[in-house]
Design a protein around this nucleic acid. Structure first.
Length: 509
DNA sequence: TATTGTGTTGGGATG
DNA sequence: CCATCCCAACACAAT
């Protein structure tokens, strides 16, 4: 008799309720990860995030081995791969961590039904977020919280989040498989990235290696800077510093290498007795933003699309592949001709992470600010390149920045020239990520097309040749787009008004 | 139903 | 250089 602990997110031993529940079953334990071909075919996972996952699984396997178990990798559709081993391992129960993403919900529903039909008990635990979305929904008067304030209010109604539980030390002897050969069988080893047909040829050494060990190390390093923790205000951190100005714990939270509840309480310890910043700008506030988007994402239909999404403004974005590709810059060099934007996109592609405000700048530029392309396209690019690409947060923030939901002051447009200057007046960030501009005079580094030809020659970079001219004139595009936004908002309001009256008419009948 | 207050993190002019 | 104010103008929540 055995129990499977099915890892998906939550790639950690600490504060892992699904793992604890599995151990408590008092049976042989099989910690399992399923390599699901759906992700290869449908999810936009770039090589960098594949590597992060691979590193996280390797770390998890090592940690499990250290306490007397191991990770078993199964390949194939979960409903087939898991069921195959239900009989082979004589499985009586399976545990997993609740996952609110649409594909996961559907998948888990299927596995739950199949498992129960096979006499396998299903145990589902919450561990990925501070609070369960359903509880937030109830605490908000059975409504989806659509503002940060409403979210904060419902969370304060719920009280403090559950305390994190420590990682299990040596496993009880009942957990070890009776068939000792399974513990060393290479059949269940983690395949290499090459075996998975991931092209790693263009990857640079990882700046943010995956795994729980790395996550805890990184968190501890952050927590040791007590002043910094207490004074942290997100809007005051820099999007274009040469080293990240924030924690870069997001990839670890996304994969569950780090428990959000552990980080929450570790921060609280540092705060205790000290004056400290408050949500939404504090580090606690950042965790609450994550909660916010997770909750809305879990409770709203069609959250990652404009069509059929009730909270999303319907805006007639255009679809211009050339503009999109310039923004995404398919080739190594930046392609929009705006150095700040191109440098950010270069960092994104190369390192898998850019600062939150940098994401604002490029997202605004692609959508309502300059290029008038759909936020869904931008979301897909982020999904491919970000190590921390997280379904709810990604869709939610793209709606925010494109003024499609949550945020509506669309006349506030980030300037691709001025915005970066305040935190990096010399343009060192641009010089780092766009070598062609490295010798450009500071005066023109944010708008190189304005430099006299003599300066361009001296810097060894001719605009239009060694670095592109701007693909749009920001001042013109901005004005045009403001008008389009205004029209779209009016049309949206009218449409909603019409829907309302027809709804009311129906009710009266 | 109308009114008022508020909104994580802009830009530009002014002193 | 910086802090401060205004710009122009919207949706949504609260009342």
């Amino acid at each position: 008799m055995s129990v499977i602990c099915w890892f998906r997110k939550g790639l950690r031993l600490h504060d892992n309720p699904a793992l604890t529940a599995a151990i408590d079953q008092g049976m042989e334990l099989f910690p399992v990860f399923v390599l699901d071909p759906w992700f290869v075919a449908n999810a936009r996972v770039g090589p960098n995030r594949w590597r992060f996952l691979h590193e996280s699984l390797t770390d998890l396997d090592n940690s499990l081995k250290a306490i007397g178990s191991r990770l078993f990798i199964l390949k194939g559709k979960p409903e087939e791969a898991l069921v195959k081993y239900y009989s082979k391992f004589d499985v009586k129960a399976i545990t997993w961590e609740y996952d609110s993403e649409p594909y996961s919900k559907e998948r888990d529903q299927r596995i739950e039904e199949i498992s129960e039909s096979k006499g396998v008990k299903v145990i589902i635990k919450h561990g990925h977020t501070l609070y369960e979305a359903e509880r937030i929904f109830k605490a908000n008067g059975n409504k989806v919280p659509l503002t940060y304030q409403a979210m904060q209010k419902s969370m304060s109604n719920l009280g403090a989040p559950p305390k994190p539980k420590p990682a299990p030390s040596q496993l009880p002897s009942h957990c070890e498989p009776k068939n000792k050969a399974l513990m060393t069988s290479t059949k269940f080893n983690i395949p290499s990235l090459e075996d998975l047909n991931i092209d790693v040829s263009e990857l640079l050494p990882p700046l943010y290696p995956g795994g729980e060990s790395e996550a805890l190390k990184r968190m501890k390093k952050c927590l040791s800077k007590k002043q910094w923790i207490c004074n942290f205000e997100k809007p005051k951190t820099s999007p274009n510093s040469l080293e990240p100005s924030t924690t870069v714990l997001s990839p670890y939270l996304k994969f569950g290498c780090l428990s959000s509840r552990l980080f929450y309480y570790e921060l609280a310890k540092v705060y205790e007795g000290n004056k400290h910043s408050q949500p939404p700008v504090s580090l606690h506030g950042q965790l609450l933003w994550r909660e916010f988007f997770y909750a809305v994402g879990a409770l709203s239909p069609n959250f990652d699309r404009m069509e059929g999404n009730p909270i999303c403004k319907q805006i007639p974005w255009s679809n211009d592949q050339k503009l999109l590709e310039a923004w995404k810059h398919v080739r190594l060099q930046g392609r929009t001709g705006y150095p700040f934007i191109d440098a950010l996109m270069t960092q994104l592609k190369r390192e898998g992470w850019i600062h939150h405000l940098g994401r604002h700048a490029v997202a605004c530029f692609l959508t309502r600010g300059d290029l008038w392309q759909s936020w869904e396209e931008g979301m897909k690019v982020f999904e491919e390149f970000l190590l921390d690409a997280d379904w709810s947060l990604n869709a939610g923030n793209w709606m925010w920045l494109s003024a499609s939901a949550f945020f509506h002051q669309y006349f506030r447009v980030y300037s691709p020239v001025a915005f970066g200057k305040s935190t990096d007046p010399d343009g060192d960030y641009i010089r780092k990520y766009i070598p062609a501009l490295s010798k450009f005079p500071t005066k023109y580094i944010y708008e190189p097309w304005k430099a006299p030809l003599s300066d361009q020659k001296a810097a060894g970079c001719i605009i239009g040749q060694d670095y592109p001219r701007p693909i749009v004139d920001h001042d013109i595009a901005r004005k045009k787009n403001l008008q389009k936004m205004s029209n779209a908002y009016k049309a949206d309001k009218e449409k909603r008004g019409a829907d309302d009256t027809s709804n009311k008419a129906k009710k009266k009948k």
